[in-house]
Write a protein that binds this DNA or RNA. Structure first.
Length: 554
RNA sequence: GGGCGAUUAGCUCAGUGGAUAGAGCACAGGCCUCCGGAGCCUGGUGUCGAGGGUUCAAAUCCCUCAUCGCCCUCCA
């Protein structure tokens, strides 16, 4: 609908300027928005005011000229008004709205999808937590946001790969292995001095106990090299298995897990650094190698190879991103914790040094979660190993409530997550509100079926019967859904779905309470069934993208 | 000290330069002989942190300031 009006406007502007009534070089793409108030019609455009400032004419006058040249061939317009400072308000004929429902029938569970992505290959990388311990609640938010962004991009026609980057290189891995080893010795009866910076969590003891079960005490007198070569991969592997399981129970399934070790194979990182050195993006200072990220706007240059000859995390990350491009991804989306925002300029510097356009990388920053229980903060500390795990949250509040609650805010704003509220099956918990609307619709359809009504085909209903304000409102919301999907994909903002769903459910519940769907009048019941079924389709489609179930009963 | 972000109703937050700034929660009162009451309806509150600027139009863009948070490793 928006597109249709937009075309009408563009044509009118073109004709006007050809007639010499408007002196403009190029027609601006008109802004068209659904209005907030009925008095302003159904859609409004500000294009006259935009043009007016360029041609130095009274905006209302410009609007009049445009309106005079509108050619409403299909007869969709009831009337067009010029209002306020120069808005053009479109009033659509009532029966036009019902026509929009035909798309819902035609596209069914694909309604809302599009092909604007054109099959472009996009990689969404998210979670990517170090394999040094189970995922905690902080990771959960990033997991859902990445997952839903990927689902949304897929819905608008991108070829999407979900990837998890495993940071299984570096000091932390040795620390992990040694942590398990110390607990191993401890469990075998030795006195150990467990350093405070080692991993403290209970899961370390569990892993150690496993080793004893399968390997016995054979490592008690082994030298450090043998210890590490067993304990490091063992612990990392077991933890990654756990992470995979936890994610699956949270509805997150990755297409690919990428190990950092991969980057070091065949001296990959070292060779990359040499190349960048040849292109003089990298310079030497003593033993240290610096990346000239300031060339690209970073505030200072960054070390890629340390004094001691070890490459930094950043060095590997450059190699990783180059690898992504080499695998054929045209766009890359990284989902990071917001505390990494200082890392952004150097990453942009890196991809530009690699010869890639800056806008092929997009970084979504995810703010911290405030975990609450009954309004009180839940104490968490990684150091002491006391944290609420993703698994515990899913077990306690369920996948649907957890996912939905993590999607209720912009990703870069802080989020309060209250376990008591998320668990509550009440109106404080928005996920039920939306799911309830869906269950209610299913129930209506069932009742209808029992009374020998079935959902009609679009061609079978009498459009003029759907003319109540609540019905027009519902249809408007339904017709807006594809724009929600498109907008969310374009802006990488999954929270738009939850806001939209809440509104759609509200309009539906209100309608339901005011008017009977299944009644005496067969034609009327039929038309309303069609409408209500369409609402159900939209709810289902949106919830599917969010990875939240749309229950038929609750 | 520098960088980034935030500041909108009692609370938690939406708001893509547009008309009278919205939603949920909380609070108060009402609504089922009827398709699911996990629902609906009715109530009201804003110095959009402050001040300046840009323009037909600013919560939105620019500058200054205040408060809060995060980051400022040759950690990952």
């Amino acid at each position: 609908m928006k597109e249709k009006l937009s075309i009408l406007l563009e044509e009118a502007i073109k004709v006007s300027s050809e007639k010499g009534l408007l002196k403009i070089e190029e027609t601006p793409s008109p802004g068209i928005e659904p209005t907030k108030e009925d008095a302003f019609g159904d859609y409004a455009s500000n294009v006259a005011m935009v043009i007016a400032s360029k041609v130095k004419t009274n905006p209302r006058k410009v609007a009049e000229i445009i309106v005079d040249h509108l050619d409403d061939r299909d007869g969709i317009l009831e009337k067009v008004e010029v209002a306020g400072p120069g808005f053009i308000n479109f009033f659509l004929r009532e029966d036009v709205w019902v026509g929009l429902l035909e798309d819902v029938e035609k596209q069914g569970d694909r309604y809302g999808e599009s092909s604007v992505g054109g099959g472009r290959r996009v990689q969404v990388e998210f979670v990517s937590a170090n394999p040094t311990g189970p995922l905690h609640v902080g990771h959960a938010r990033g997991a859902v946001i990445g997952d839903v962004i990927a689902n949304t991009l897929r819905a608008v026609g991108y070829d999407v790969t979900k990837e998890y980057y495993i940071n299984d290189v570096g000091n932390q891995m040795n620390t992990l292995g040694l942590s398990v080893y110390l607990r191993y010795r401890e469990l075998l009866g030795e006195e150990v001095d467990f350093p405070p910076h080692y991993y403290q969590g209970r899961y370390i003891q569990d892993l150690a106990a496993q080793v004893i079960k399968t390997q016995g005490n054979k490592f008690l007198n082994a030298d450090e090299k043998d210890v590490l070569s067993f304990f490091v991969p063992y612990a990392a592997g077991a933890i990654m298995d756990g992470i995979r399981d936890d994610l699956r129970s949270f509805g997150v399934v990755f297409d690919n897990y990428f190990s950092e070790q991969e980057l070091y194979r065949n001296d990959g990182v070292a060779r990359l650094i040499e190349e960048l050195q040849e292109k003089s993006f990298i310079y030497r200072e003593g033993n240290t190698l610096w990346f000239r990220t300031t060339d690209f706007g970073d505030e200072k240059d960054r070390v890629v190879v340390r004094e001691n000859g070890e490459p930094t995390y950043f060095a590997a990350d450059i190699a990783y991103h180059r690898n992504k491009y080499e695998r054929g991804f045209e766009e890359i989306i990284d989902v990071w914790g917001a505390d990494h925002h200082g890392y952004l300029p150097r990453m942009y510097a890196a991809i530009q040094a690699l010869g890639r356009e800056k806008d092929t990388l997009k970084v979504v920053l995810v703010q911290l979660v405030n975990l609450l229980r009954g309004g009180k903060p839940v104490a968490m500390s990684t150091r002491s190993g006391e944290f609420v795990t993703l698994r515990e949250v899913v077990d306690e509040v369920g996948k649907d409530a957890a996912r939905y609650n993590f999607l209720m805010r912009r990703s870069d704003s802080h989020l309060d997550f209250d376990l008591e509220i998320a668990k509550k099956q009440s109106n404080e918990n928005p996920v039920y509100y939306v799911q309830y609307a869906h269950a209610r619709i299913c129930s209506i359809l069932k009742t209808a079926h029992e009374r020998c009504y079935s959902v009609p085909r679009y061609g079978e209903i009498e459009p003029r019967l759907l003319k109540l304000p609540e019905e027009i409102m519902l249809i408007k919301y339904i017709s807006r859904y594809p724009e929600v999907v498109g907008g969310s994909a374009q802006a990488l903002e999954p929270h738009r779905f939850t806001f939209y769903l809440n509104e759609l459910a509200a309009v539906f519940h209100s309608y339901y309470n005011k008017h009977r769907v299944v009644g005496e009048d067969a034609a009327l019941s039929s038309a309303r069934l069609f409408l209500v079924n369409a609402v159900g389709i939209v709810l289902r489609n949106a919830l599917r993208i969010l990875g939240v179930t749309a229950p038929e009963k609750m």
